[in-house]
């Protein structure tokens, strides 16, 4: 995929919960086509994926409870909160509030 269409970009933006302004669509499409051209250099590399794996060692910690942050402090940064809750608009799945 070396060229993005307006529809491609709008579909990805919807997944990412972002809105692309119509006036910037042309520039975004050009930028993404450039970046895609840059990363498609990886097509030159032939892989035997059955034998090539990635790995990372993580440290395991004992699963013991630790003191929690005070809920009042945590909720100070919410736009709408009433301890111990933060508020979201009322909504029904698939519908509007």
């Amino acid at each position: 995929m070396s060229k993005w269409t307006k529809q491609d970009l709008e579909n990805i933006a919807k997944l990412a919960k972002l809105r692309i302004q119509p006036e910037s669509m042309h520039d975004r499409l050009r930028e993404f086509s450039d970046i895609l051209g840059h990363i498609e250099v990886l097509e030159q590399v032939q892989l035997d994926q059955s034998t090539e794996t990635t790995s990372q060692t993580l440290q395991m910690f004992a699963d013991t409870p630790q003191p929690c942050l005070p809920i009042e402090d945590v909720l100070k940064n919410a736009t709408h909160a009433d301890v111990p809750f933060f508020f979201i608009p009322k909504f029904i799945e698939g519908g509007k509030s």
Partner: peptide, 18 residues
Amino acid sequence: IRYTTQKGQEGGLDQIYV
């Protein structure tokens, strides 16, 4: 919702996100 600057309160949840 939880700790970021909120916009779009007049719409639904999805509008707040977007």
